[in-house]
């Protein structure tokens, strides 16, 4: 490992962290503290559905021209339950709990995006 390698790796790390910060800021911008957490469902790049998270566990079936996915919206996040595709990549994607988090299902051209914070959800359970 030479000095130039260390410089390159440091630069890459810095850029990754900068991208992370940028996405956090951009992702957080849409959902203020008072806004409820929402899940946006995009198919083919177009907004199909918006789900507001509440204290219930909601199961949402998404039918795309390419296949069917089942999404679960928890009070504190969102996860893909099932997909009728071969890869199952989106099903293995862990639960998204942060604003700006996405779950992508490439074979079905489906994108799930979470926006907002979850204080409301937690409070709703407590009260």
């Amino acid at each position: 490992m030479k000095r130039m390698d260390a410089i390159i790796i440091a630069a890459l790390l810095f850029l990754s962290l900068a991208a992370f910060a940028g996405i956090q800021i951009l992702g957080g911008a849409g959902g203020g503290k008072d806004e409820p957490a929402r899940v946006f469902v995009y198919v083919d790049g177009e907004l199909r559905e918006t789900v507001v998270l509440n204290s219930q566990v909601q199961e949402i079936e998404i039918r795309t021209p390419y296949g069917v996915n089942t999404l679960i919206a928890y009070p504190d996040g969102v996860k893909m339950k099932s997909a009728d595709c071969a890869s199952q990549t989106c099903v293995h994607t862990p639960k998204r709990i942060y604003s700006g988090g996405v779950i992508a299902c490439l074979p079905h051209k489906l994108l799930i995006r979470l926006e907002g914070r979850f204080d409301g959800g937690v409070d709703a359970i407590a009260s």
Partner: peptide, 27 residues
């Protein structure tokens, strides 16, 4: 390519985690 296929740049949210894992596996 994923952003192109999905028609949405939102998938770029994966970039930081992928980039950091890429740095490690790349090394």
């Amino acid at each position: 390519m994923a952003a192109f296929i999905l028609g949405s740049l939102n998938v770029m949210a994966y970039l930081p985690v992928l980039a950091i894992s890429g740095i490690i596996t790349g090394i």
